[in-house]
Design a protein around this nucleic acid. Sequence first.
DNA 1: ATAATATGGTGAT
DNA 2: TCACCCTATTATC
Length: 262
Amino acid sequence: MPEGHTIHRLARDLASTLGTEPLQVTSPQGRFADGAADLDGRSLVQADAWGKHLFLDFDGPRLHVHLGLIGKFRRPRGDGPIPDSVRLRIENGDTAWHLTGPQTCRLVEPGEVSEITDKLGPDPLRRGARPDRFVEALARRRAPIAAALLDQNIIAGIGNVYRAEFLFIEGIDPVTPAANLRPDQALALWDLAKAQLRQGVRLNRIVTVSADDAGSPPGRLRRADALYVYKREGRPCRRCATEITIGQVGGRSCWWCPSCQS
DNA sequence: ATAATATGGTGAT
DNA sequence: TCACCCTATTATC
């Protein structure tokens, strides 16, 4: 679930559903009991996403949430029992949200927010993001481009799915040293990231396959048809039918087409 | 039942 | 480069 698009969509959905009225905040699991007590009865005045970081401003206290690999922030359907795993529950009259398995859920001082965001690379989903900083950061790196795209200090919000998909779409070999990319290739990656992450926010899921390649609009694609290479090792490339390859790049599995990406 | 896996990141070795 | 954290779902005995 969580790459940058997820967090930006969450910021939007939390703000629109929770409004600005006082909220009930609890920690059914108990591991955020003190923080929840501080937030209880306050209202949400702003929800802001920076890459994969989410900051919720409760009119004073600020909550920092990072979902990590398995965290989820979702609206429980119906009104069954509240699972023991819910770290944070926020509710108003009509809406409830459950946060489970987050890597981070803690109150921070206002200064800590900028401390965190200052270290992040540009986030293509934020207004005023600086693509030139992304391009310059790549030019300084000898690490493989596939590793650089996962580095949140270089570009914020890309995860393991998008990095593989972007490199396929741009026809770039994942192990190419970042500094070896031409400036136009680096800029193309930025523009692609911006367009794809925006679409991810809109659809609330990752769909990278183009309407041309899929033969149907992106929103209607089945899960299995939504991606070009991610987790498709051994299967034929959608463009050239060569077998998709898997390898470790930057400590994570990466997938690519050895023919389209060289 | 138990294990493996996951769109992430940190801290120790 | 590894071990580890957190939870839910799927795969394998």
